[in-house]
Design a protein around this nucleic acid. Structure first.
Lengths: 196, 196, 196, 196
DNA sequence: TATGAATGAGCATTCATTCAT
DNA sequence: TATGAATGAATGCTCATTCAT
């Protein structure tokens, strides 16, 4: 199943179907995004999707992988470029919300999947995200930028704040995400910094 | 439809069915919580649920009303009893997590419903929650306990932190919610307080 | 099941239920006139209808009997009062349409039943109606008022003309039934009379 | 949706399903002609009918279209071929009853549908039929073949006479429809002609 | 007599999937 | 590779009926 084992045309088909799946998930919601609807969007038969992906579960999996890569590619370099934990945390907020802004539909599709496929293989993803945040936090504590606090609750709060955004993005698509990112960064800067 | 117009036995059946619906929603998830599954759990025929509730929508509605009442009864008095905004915010975290601790399955069921009925009548619920938080924040700014900040982003962060909890509760049912509440309260105390 | 074997109160209940069944059939149509709907209209439980009538079939049967009696009581004396077959035929049209005018809902209920319960026990009713018409026609031929023609086709045409009316009554409730009766009488007077 | 856009095999399936629907409607009646029964008759799963027709409503629609075309193709040329209104009226009876004779089951199916879908889209069909008859009648009055009479009652009587036939056809499938047509034509010839 | 709780069968529909072509 | 025909299971729902009280 490695990407190298696929012909060019197959790769193109997969990409096209994934795009249409994202479109369907983001605009129709998980429940309405049936294979038939996705297939119609892709101007393709439902059978073909099963042919390329083996089934719905694997299509969803592929969508998740696609969007996660999209997010990681955009966010990770920005965060790693920072030289202090404080800056890294700020970059974390900014790049997350930048991603939501630049890839609204993929983001919404991903949210739909995570939220609906409770026992899907992405539950781990959430944990990974938490652990990543904790790394930044631990770094800040080591350098003395951050006060002493338990990592997990702070990570939950940070991740929760970010995860709360898409829901409001859905209602108010024109929300000022840049301003929101700045505010969130400030909030958690105050919450984490070593008391003056 | 007032509860007084119902027989004792009907009230009991409704309660039993609501309980089983909560059980099904919490353990199986929204998608798998079909009328048939709920009925089987209640050792009852699916038709009977329609008989008592009129249909699935109204059953869900009844579940929401039940859980919301449970939550409000537990949380509201605690929050209103506080005399400072700082204490109110702390009580907000504590009572929310206390509710999650004491009524884990109802909470999970409610989350399933809110999250899946994207365009349902519960979308508003989220907004109400935000506005409630903003009232407390505005109060704290008026009294001078809190610094100046934009209400909406702070409210989003607070609500997000709380909403993030059930998801972890699902994986680690024995998580120390009391400790978590204290940590969250501290985090947002630092984030909101007038700088020293 | 003879009416004498029933108590007064039972008779009253039956009458009330029959009335409500007629109301439901006429206003909602056969398909929508479920036991539950009829029961709600009668402010009674569905079970009680089964108790009094044994089941839906027998309720329908009772409705048919009721309406047929209503019709017969109104029409038969008028027709029998005539001294010539020509007048009897005219009275047949007039009294039929008078019945439709005076008992619109019972009539519509009866039509619903006949039309929907294809294999019900009222198929015979239609035949009886035909035979009755044929008697009048035969009488007219005997007295020399009517020309020679085959009875059955003429009876079918006459009955068909009458049966066509309710359908138009449904669309245009204010149709001038008196005028229509006169026209129909004229039409079949010309069709049946001995050629001048 | 044009017939050209359908595969040969799909067209065949549709035809087969329509045939089975007609069979079910004619022999079982509207109420009993469920998707499941039709599917069983067609040795096919109920889902396939939805696949080909989208749903029950559209299947019924297709049946109506099919039968109406059948009827129109047979009747219209015969009626239009006549040069006098009197002949046209006779042709109207003859071709109607010829259609009933040659396509008994389609006719019965159509009657079931029209009669049961009280508020469906076929109620208009009845009105169209009346108007068509009135055109012939008006023509005859213009040419002086027919006497002066109100069009609507005469049309009702004519249409009623024809509509009465299927009901008798149901009980006595071997009824001599040719003879009946001749008799009906005579009856309305006498009723409409200018008095000698 | 009458109720209200409960059943079980039947309904149309949707869906992911399979398979011959 | 890709199609379109077909399946079978599941879903929510309605209905006439039954039965203990």
């Amino acid at each position: 199943m490695a990407s190298e084992s696929r012909t060019f045309i197959e790769e193109a088909r997969r990409a096209q179907i994934i795009d249409c799946a994202i479109e369907a998930l983001a605009t129709l919601g998980y429940q309405q995004a049936s294979m038939a609807k996705i297939a119609k969007l892709a101007k393709v038969t439902p059978g073909l999707i099963s042919y390329h992906f083996g089934g719905k579960d694997e299509l969803i999996e592929a969508v998740v992988a696609h969007v996660v890569k999209l997010a990681t590619d955009l966010m990770l370099p920005r965060i790693l470029a920072q030289t202090t934990a404080t800056d890294a945390l700020r970059a974390y907020f900014e790049s997350n919300l930048e991603f939501m802004h630049r890839h609204r539909k993929p983001l919404l599709a991903l949210v739909e999947i995570i939220v609906h496929d409770r026992d899907g293989p992405y539950a781990g993803q959430q944990d990974t995200a938490l652990t990543d945040i904790e790394k930044v936090l631990a770094w800040g504590q080591q350098t003395g930028e951050f006060r002493e606090f338990e990592l997990r609750p702070m990570a939950i709060a940070i991740r929760g704040a970010i995860d709360a955004v898409p829901s409001y993005l859905l209602k108010d698509p024109d929300y000022d995400l840049g301003g929101l990112a700045a505010e969130l960064a400030t909030i958690f800067s105050l919450a984490t910094r070593r008391a003056p």
